[in-house]
């Protein structure tokens, strides 16, 4: 049984009276431990596909099945619970909560899971060390550089030990050196913890690092290449 499966999924956005088809008839399957990227130019539907995989949205038609469960029937609450336990997100613009410190941001999912404070703190501290940002726990996002903020975002995504981490254009706002470091970091996590990574990106460096490249074009599946690495 595959981890995540998209079965003939379509998504149409409605803006006023206009209908915009973002995805049309896409079918994909992901296994545990994958390191995959959804590639394609802007407007190809990468972000939409990622949102569907991450249970952030319902498809207009088709099914999204995770661990054998069809998400189409699930309530908002059930989806939220599912995301909390299983999925971590890294967004293009970090989306850290400005009033919280770096550590507080990172432990947010643990807080939602009602993990007691000392445990949370310990976990996050360890993560920060691994990610090379220890010492920055009590700084607010406004006082961190882009790269540091992105690492905090990664820490947040990972803190709850999710099975899947979804990253939407994670390197878009980073300089090349930081981007390299980030990708290296994610590959390491994928190797050591068997966390599934699914990206969306149009950055060639990212695509180069992936073991599986899924090309999307105009909302349709164009190519699905698995590269052994």
């Amino acid at each position: 049984m595959s981890l995540i499966e998209l079965q003939d999924v379509s998504k149409i956005y409605r803006l006023g009276s206009q209908e915009i088809p973002a995805l049309t008839g896409v079918s994909l399957t992901f296994e545990a431990g994958e390191f995959a990227v959804l590639a394609g130019p802007s407007g190809s539907g990468k972000t939409t596909a990622l949102n569907l995989i991450g249970c952030l949205d319902h498809p207009t038609s088709g099914h999204v099945i995770v661990n054998g469960l069809d998400l189409g029937t699930a309530s908002k609450k059930a989806l939220a619970d599912f995301r909390l336990q299983n999925i971590g997100f890294i967004f293009q613009s970090y989306n850290l909560i400005p009033v919280l410190t770096a550590a507080e941001n990172a432990e947010f999912t643990l807080m939602l899971q009602k993990v007691p404070k000392p445990e949370r703190r310990a976990k996050v501290r360890k993560l920060f060390v691994d990610l090379g940002i220890d010492g920055l726990e009590n700084r607010r996002p406004a006082d961190l550089s882009g790269g540091q903020q992105q690492r905090v975002a990664i820490a947040r995504a990972m803190a709850a030990d999710p099975h899947v981490i979804l990253a939407d254009e994670p390197t878009a706002n980073l300089d090349s050196h930081t981007a390299e470091e980030l990708l290296e970091l994610m590959r390491r996590l994928n190797r050591e913890q068997a966390t599934t990574f699914i990206f969306s990106s149009h950055d060639d460096r990212v695509i180069a690092q992936a073991r599986r490249v899924i090309h999307l074009q105009d909302g349709c599946l164009a190519d699905d290449l698995t590269i052994s690495k």
Binding site: A80, F82, P98
Partner: peptide
């Protein structure tokens, strides 16, 4: 609103 989107994405319930 944006922040709320993120919090919901992370798995918080609407009630929270």
């Amino acid at each position: 609103m944006r922040e709320f989107g993120v919090i919901l994405a992370m798995g918080s319930r609407p009630m929270t």
